[in-house]
C-alpha cells in the first residue's frame, strides 16, 4: 500500500524538506473527493493524486507556486472544485553558542515555538544534555562544534558565550555559513570590540552589518528568562515577518524619547 500523503508530508517536514499539500475541500465531481490530496516538493516531485490526472497537473502547478511564494490559500480549479494549498515548511533551526544562564530558557522557549535547537559550549558541565532536554548538545571547542552544527536558509544563530573572544571566534565561524539570522549579545562596547576585531580579520562587511546587536526585541528585559524571551520574540518576528520588521521595531523604540 502506498504511504498516505499526509503521513508522508509529516515525514518530509520532520526530515527538513518543505512541501505543499494540496487538498480537495469541496467538489461536486464524484471522481474528485474532498480529502483527496497530492504533495508538491521543491525539487519538482509530485506524490499522490486528487483523483483526476488532468486536474493533478493543474493542482501540482498551483501547489509548486504556493510553495515558492510560501503562501497558503484556497483556490478554485476545474469546474468549481475548491483546493486548499497548505505550505508545510521545514522547521527552523536554532544554534545557540554558549550554554550559560540565558541559554537554558532560550532553548526551552525556542523549542516551544517550533525551533529545533542545538546548544554549543566548550564546558561539558554547561553543555550537558540534562540542562537542555529535547535539544542537540555539543560539548567541544566552539569552532569545532560549529562545524558539526546544521546551517542553511532556515538556521538562526544566537551568540551568547561567556566572553568576547569566544563571541568573536563563533561569529567568525558562523558568518561565512548560510543563515536566516545571526544575533550577538553584549554591551555596545563589547559588541563594538567583537565587530571591529572581525572586520580587521577580513570578515565580509555586509554580513557584519546584518548581525542583530543589541540582540532581542526591546521589551526592557532584565532577568535571564526575560532576555531569553526577548531573543525568542525577535526570532519569531524574523521568521514570520522578516528581518526588516524586527529592525523597524527596535528603531521605533529607540526613536521614542
Amino acid at each position: 500500500m502506498l504511504t498516505d500523503p499526509l503521513d508522508r508530508a509529516a515525514e518530509l517536514v520532520q526530515a527538513g524538506t518543505a512541501v505543499c499539500a494540496a487538498t480537495v475541500i469541496a467538489s461536486d465531481d464524484p471522481a474528485v473527493r474532498p480529502g483527496a490530496r497530492l504533495l508538491a516538493l521543491r525539487d519538482g516531485t509530485v506524490e499522490g493524486s486528487v483523483g483526476d490526472a488532468g486536474l493533478d497537473r493543474e493542482v501540482a502547478e498551483l501547489a509548486a507556486g504556493a510553495l515558492a511564494r510560501n503562501r497558503r490559500e484556497a483556490v478554485t480549479v476545474g469546474s468549481g472544485i475548491r483546493v486548499f494549498l497548505d505550505v508545510l515548511a521545514e522547521g527552523a533551526q536554532l544554534v545557540v553558542c554558549g550554554a550559560g544562564h540565558i541559554a537554558v530558557p532560550l532553548a526551552r522557549f525556542a523549542r516551544a515555538v517550533g525551533f529545533t535547537v542545538t546548544v554549543i559550549d566548550d564546558r561539558p558541565e554547561f553543555a550537558h544534555p540534562d540542562r537542555f532536554p529535547g535539544c542537540a548538545v555539543i560539548a567541544d571547542e566552539f569552532v569545532d562544534a560549529l562545524e558539526r552544527a546544521p546551517f542553511g536558509p532556515v538556521t538562526y544563530a544566537v551568540v551568547i558565550t561567556r566572553g568576547h573572544e569566544h563571541d568573536a571566534d563563533c561569529l567568525e565561524a558562523v558568518l561565512p555559513r548560510e543563515t536566516a539570522y545571526v544575533g550577538l549579545i553584549g554591551s555596545r562596547r563589547r559588541v563594538r570590540f567583537v565587530l571591529d576585531t572581525l572586520e580587521r580579520a577580513g570578515a565580509a562587511r555586509d554580513r557584519l552589518e546584518q548581525v542583530f546587536t543589541p540582540i532581542g526585541l526591546p521589551i526592557g528585559a532584565e532577568s535571564p528568562e526575560e532576555i531569553a524571551l526577548s531573543i525568542v520574540a525577535e526570532l519569531v518576528c524574523v521568521r514570520r515577518k522578516g528581518p526588516a520588521q524586527a529592525r523597524a521595531l527596535r528603531a521605533a523604540v529607540e526613536k521614542t524619547p
Binding site: 499526509l6 503521513d7 508530508a9 509529516a10 515525514e11 517536514v13 520532520q14 497548505d86 508545510l88 522547521g91
Partner: peptide, 23 residues
C-alpha cells in the same frame, strides 16, 4: 506547532485511535 500536529496525527493513526484533523 502545526508541524507537531501532523506528526502527532501520524502517531495517533498508528495506534488506531479515531482522530479528525481540522485545518
Amino acid at each position: 506547532t502545526d508541524r507537531d500536529v501532523l506528526v502527532k496525527l501520524r502517531e495517533l493513526r498508528r495506534t488506531g485511535v479515531g482522530v479528525c484533523l481540522a485545518t
